[in-house]
């Protein structure tokens, strides 16, 4: 009997407010990298899971992004709190790359209300060596280096920790723009910029 489910399925969170589907090519790109670099049994396509649905619990790692204000409904807030309490991990990326933007301000508030307050994640955290090594912490994005958004290079990611494990990982670095391209175009890069996505997946699967 083969496995009923692959070990990993990339899931994108669909929430009631905002533009949850603003980076539609990120799932395929991360799936490609996980399949390319690891032996993890990964589903070839991602899924979209409503944040307020019980189906959320089928996917212990969920990706959430957007540009617009985030307002979790009561059901979404309750579901997300329970999801993290059971061991699920939410990866949130600010598609605006703007700490003064509406997504950032409202997402921080919504996450604090559902799970807990975000805090800086040390750059020597296990996340940065779970597969590829990132000794300087989170890799910078071209959007940061080009001065777009808030014109900042963010030194840290933020996280809500349960014990020493990450429940919510929050990025202001705009990986949603950085990874939002067709996987075939990776051949034009000297270094694959989605490697950090592999670290997030491997960390979620092993820690």
């Amino acid at each position: 009997m083969g496995r009923l489910m692959p070990d990993f399925t990339f899931a994108t969170a669909q929430y009631d407010s905002g533009d949850w589907d603003s980076a539609p090519l990120v799932p395929a790109n991360v799936i490609d990298s996980v399949a390319r670099y690891t032996a993890i049994d990964v589903a070839p396509t991602g899924v979209i899971v409503p944040l307020g649905s019980r189906d959320l619990f089928k996917y212990p790692l969920v990706y959430l992004t957007g540009h617009l204000p985030v307002r979790f409904s009561d059901v979404e807030r309750t579901r997300l709190g329970e999801y993290c309490a059971r061991g699920g991990m939410l990866f949130v990326d600010d598609h605006n790359h703007d700490v003064d933007g509406q997504f950032h301000k409202t997402a921080w508030e919504a996450i604090a209300g559902a799970v807990g307050p975000l805090q800086d994640l040390p750059n020597d955290h296990a996340l940065y060596r779970s597969f590829f090594r990132f000794p300087d912490g989170p890799p910078t994005t071209s959007h940061e280096l080009n001065g777009w958004g808030d014109n900042l290079v963010h030194k840290h990611l933020q996280a809500v920790l349960r014990g020493d494990r990450i429940s919510v990982l929050y990025s202001s670095k705009d990986y949603s723009s950085e990874w939002n391209y067709h996987p075939d175009n990776k051949r034009f890069f000297s270094v694959d910029n989605t490697r950090f996505g592999v670290n997030i997946v491997v960390y979620a699967l092993t820690s």
């Binding site: 070990d7 990993f8 690891t38 212990p60 061991g87 699967l205 092993t206 820690s207």
Partner: peptide, 15 residues
């Protein structure tokens, strides 16, 4: 084990 949800959550449960 191998990297996967079963290993992750067994470790979490034991800890």
């Amino acid at each position: 084990g191998r990297a996967g949800w079963e290993s992750k959550f067994v470790i979490a449960a034991l800890e």
